[in-house]
Amino acid sequence: MKAVIFDLDDTLFDHTTSATKALHSWVPALGGTSSDELVAQWFVIEQHCFDRWLNGDTTHQGQRRERLRSFLPLIGHVVPDGDAELDDIYTDFLGHYRAHWVAFPDAQPALEVARSNGWRIGVLTNGSTAQQNAKLTEIGLAALVDVVCTSEILGVSKPDPQAYLRTCEALGADPAETLMIGDNYDLDVAAARKAGLTAHHLDRAAGVTLLDLLRRRS
């Protein structure tokens, strides 16, 4: 192996915990009552709206507004008519979200092991360029990453084979010399293997860690 590509959200960066904590502080600030069920509904809405952006059905800001139009009625909050008001509300959520950004404990050690192996390190994420780079900087991992490829930069998103191939090209490594690691089996493993990479599934629920997968690199 000459390079390793990591997914970001829920692989290196603990998006689920960060968003959950944000919701538990943000919803009461809007006059609602936070609950585990409400958080679960947020993530369903998030996935639906985010996929619409990836599919080209809306803009990145548009999918944020769509989230609020679906979510605010669940907490008894009036949905504003204007986009500017929706944007202000979402900006408030982002403040709560950013306040809780955190890396997984094994993220930095894993990147350091990859670096000690002499591998080039990439991040491939379907998220927005500005926010994903901000996450890496905020959680202290940016200096350990050589290349960050986002769907915005590449013009394609996972599971399109070009997303993996163009990231390998940016790293200066052939797909056969590159390992992909991520938490989403379909996007980070099956599709990466189809593109010619070696890929391992980060199943944290089963107790798997990034360091486990780096040891199983072939």
Score class of each variant (00 low, 15 high):
180 M>T: 08
218 S>Y: 13
48 H>C: 09
10 D>R: 12
28 P>D: 11
84 A>D: 13
137 T>V: 13
21 K>D: 15
119 W>I: 10
96 H>M: 07
181 I>F: 01
166 R>M: 08
97 Y>A: 02
29 A>T: 10
70 S>Y: 08
26 W>A: 05
179 L>T: 06
193 R>H: 04
97 Y>H: 07
31 G>C: 12
120 R>P: 11
20 T>H: 13
144 L>M: 05
143 A>L: 03
203 D>H: 15
141 L>R: 09
173 A>I: 09
56 G>Q: 03
46 E>R: 10
100 H>P: 06
56 G>I: 06
78 V>S: 12
107 A>K: 06
197 L>W: 05
199 A>R: 03
29 A>Y: 08
161 P>Q: 02
177 E>M: 04
52 R>H: 13
185 Y>F: 12
187 L>S: 07
110 A>R: 01
152 E>D: 14
168 C>A: 14
157 S>Y: 02
53 W>C: 05
143 A>C: 10
99 A>L: 13
114 A>R: 07
29 A>Q: 05
106 D>Y: 08
218 S>R: 07
156 V>A: 06
140 G>V: 11
132 Q>T: 04
183 D>L: 01
102 V>Y: 03
16 T>H: 11
125 T>M: 08
33 T>I: 12
191 A>C: 13
106 D>P: 13
36 D>M: 01
133 N>P: 11
27 V>G: 02
64 R>V: 10
180 M>E: 03
62 G>R: 04
59 T>S: 14
169 E>G: 11
91 T>V: 15
164 Y>C: 13
145 V>L: 00
77 H>E: 11
149 C>K: 04
7 D>S: 03
24 H>M: 15
